[in-house]
Write a protein that binds this DNA or RNA. Structure first.
Lengths: 301, 301
DNA sequence: TATTTGCCTGCCAATTTCTCCAGAAAATCT
DNA sequence: AGATTTTCTGGAGAAATTGGCAGGCAAATA
């Protein structure tokens, strides 16, 4: 079966590039391969719009109050920039967690959507992260895309085509509900997306929820409800996550002092910053700064 | 008249067991006798499905915004787990408030309902607590049930029969509208009942009304409306009552510290907890903890 | 006497609940 | 079928709840 072929192929490739655990590029723009030899702790991430096909092992992510789990041949589609918590739950050196991811291009989605949507689209429940079994044509397209990685002469021509094809299949797949919504002007999803862009754009600035609702063109309460429905969190929590994740980066990798990091991401009181930091990461910022940065991979609890 | 007989009999019995004011068992499972020698303050209770026949004195209960009053030979039927406020308003040492109560078994109700409902049931207005004059066969059945209390040899055979009979009469009585509705799958009452089960099951967890509505299979606004119609209160108030009543128990009887009690019943901020507690009980939690627990019975205001 | 601890109160912004209403859908009647 | 009534849904907006924080008080502790 082609699928097993793809899996074997990719896993071999991953073994060769034993570069480590962080996602690493495969030679195609926007395409990355993720591999983990061990279950990990829960770690916070910021997703971008992405399509990720799990080939081996299992992973779960938490969006606010929601928990989704992905196993072999399942996949997830993220349609929005989203902070989340992820955890690889099944992985071993013999059988590591392996997944192939492609960044999505929302412009491309919009473009395709106009061509696709004849029938009036139903209002489906659209979540920021959709998951489920991967439809066969998608797996196949991913395989063909992956095969392009060292056909340098073919890439410039074929890669855009396959990318477009993947976007198409996603758009019409079951998991594509959010993408379809996003393409629809004035849908809730599209409005929330606009608001999220604002939050991301200035996450270190003081944020007034009223203004966001305004940007989205919704009532404050309606905005809250939709926001939660789609992202699984409230606007403020969303922003807080972004802030803290960035702060952590500043602290662990840029070695900023705690207070500096706090101010940098928009906190006015280092006290408050410290409290929230500890609550989210389980470690105080001071500690994170002191300790040597280490690999994500850890024996699972 | 047989009724007077029953009353005299029970009152005598109650005098014998001068155990005090709390409801006390009469030797039949699920059957209790309530006696109060004095009017009481308003006190919060959590009803279970129950049928309660008032024999002497008067009592009133408040469900949210509704006030119902029960006097001699009136009775009330509670079909749902319901927090409420009760108050004995007419009682004296010479003529105490006396009532006989039987817990109801909703499974039994369902069972009987299928046997009973030939005619398509009308949609009647169904309230969580129904009250009114007690129909004669019911009083009679209650009398016969009460007489079983010391016929230990007859109990195993006759008690289930009488219980069933009582359920039957309730189901067809005027006060049985809620019971009839509950038995009907997909009725509003049945849906709300499901939601209430959820609330009760985890009243100390963060609860989202959207989800409750989901459980009930109704729109949020429809859910609100139905919930209020049946219970006389809103979902949040309902949950809050449960929380605070439990918290009060923890504070007065288990002697938990205020903050602990707050966390225990699901508040994340003792501040807020304290505020609400005072509002509902008229006394700050601190005070309730400090003061010696005392009897419910107090001279009425 | 000074400090600490536990709690209450007021204030603020965020979040959620809840009412109300218009339009859609379903049921009922003609 | 078509008309009418009833019921339901979804959304806006007002109102309430919530949690955080600062200030204060009073009892317990040092």
């Amino acid at each position: 079966m082609q699928i097993d072929e793809l899996i074997r192929e990719i896993i071999n490739f991953a073994d060769l590039c034993a570069a480590g655990s962080d996602p690493f590029p495969v030679g195609l723009p926007g395409v990355t391969l993720v591999r983990q030899r061990r279950p990990t702790y829960v770690y916070p991430v910021v997703y971008q719009p992405i399509f990720c096909l799990v080939l081996q092992g299992e992973k779960q992510t938490m969006l606010g109050d929601r928990l989704v789990r992905f196993a072999r041949l399942q996949s997830f589609v993220v349609g929005l920039d989203m902070p989340a918590k992820a955890q690889v739950v099944k992985a071993s050196p013999r059988e590591p967690y392996v997944a192939l991811a492609v960044e999505l291009d929302l412009n491309l989605i919009n473009e395709l959507a106009t061509a696709v949507s004849q029938g009036a689209l139903e209002d489906e429940r659209a979540l920021a992260v959709q998951s489920g079994e991967t439809e066969a044509p998608l797996v196949d397209a991913m395989r063909r895309m992956f095969d392009l990685r060292d056909r340098h002469e073919a890439q410039p021509v074929l890669f855009p085509l396959i990318l477009k094809e993947i976007h198409y299949w996603l758009l019409v797949s079951e998991q594509g509900s959010l993408l379809r919504q996003l393409a629809k002007k004035d849908s809730h999803a599209a409005r929330i997306s606009k608001a999220i862009a604002v939050i991301k754009g200035c996450y270190s600035a003081a944020l007034r929820v009223d203004d966001l609702a305004d940007v989205a063109g919704m009532s404050v309460s309606g905005f809250h409800a939709s926001f939660r429905e789609i992202t699984g969190t409230s606007p403020l929590q969303f922003q807080k996550q972004l802030r803290l994740i960035e702060a952590r980066r500043l602290i662990k990798w840029e070695r900023l002092r705690v207070a500096e990091a706090a101010y940098h991401v928009g906190y006015e009181s280092p006290t408050q910053f410290s409290r929230e930091y500890s609550r989210v990461f389980g470690v105080s910022p001071r500690k994170d700064r002191t300790e040597v940065p280490h690999d994500l991979a850890e024996p699972a609890a």
